[in-house]
């Protein structure tokens, strides 16, 4: 499946999940974008991952009352089908509309987006992209990512161990001799 088709599928399923108020499904959909986002590092894939994750979090708090967001997602899908030239702008517009969807909650929703970016960055780092590179992709700082990623199990994956502890201790002892 091509990456654009993948975004359409994710957005179509997002609409269904929003109508059903299925927050778990939204989280799962956002996670499905991690593989493509890590590999292509394409801004649109990353934006979709952050938006879908944020929608799940906002819905959990009951702040998505009407069908405006679903209509906006329809417009984004149409743009992708037309050729995708306006996709990045459409996603930006979608994000801006989500921020406006509940008057008085703009700051909260912006904070949800920021946290969603850190969460997605942690997933992409977990997929093997470096910390600094990932932070740049998501528009966050390495400080935020390090703080978050340190509390996940990323460093416990067996592949992370590349040199024995004794050998590495030997390196540090040698340099301090």
């Amino acid at each position: 499946m091509k990456d654009g088709e993948n975004i359409i599928r994710i957005l179509e399923e997002t609409k269904v999940a929003l109508k059903a108020k299925d927050t778990l499904k939204l989280k799962q959909l956002s996670d499905q974008t991690n593989n493509t986002a890590s590999r292509t590092q394409d801004a649109d894939n990353i934006a979709v991952a952050v938006i879908v994750y944020s929608l799940g979090k906002i819905l959990e708090r009951g702040y998505l009352g009407d069908g405006l967001i679903v209509k906006r997602i329809d417009a984004v899908i149409k743009n992708i089908k037309k050729g995708g030239n306006l996709l990045t702008n459409s996603l930006k517009q979608l994000r801006a509309e989500i921020e406006r969807v509940s008057p008085g909650m703009k700051k909260y929703i912006q904070e949800v987006f920021r946290k969603a970016s850190i969460n997605k960055a942690s997933k992409i780092y977990g997929h093997g992209v470096s910390m600094e590179n990932t932070a740049k992709l998501l528009g966050i700082t390495v400080w935020e990512l390090a703080n978050y990623a340190g509390q996940t199990g990323i460093s416990d994956s067996p592949e992370s161990k590349t040199l024995g502890i004794r050998e590495r201790i030997k390196l540090v002892k040698e340099i301090f001799e």
Binding site: M131, L145, A146, N147, A149, G150, Q151, I154, S155, D156, S157, S160, K161, I165, R166, I169
Partner: peptide, 16 residues
């Protein structure tokens, strides 16, 4: 240091 991003596993900490 692990909790602030150092990539070290629980097992490595125990070994160390």
């Amino acid at each position: 240091v692990k909790f602030k991003g150092c990539s070290i596993s629980n097992q490595e900490i125990n070994e160390m």
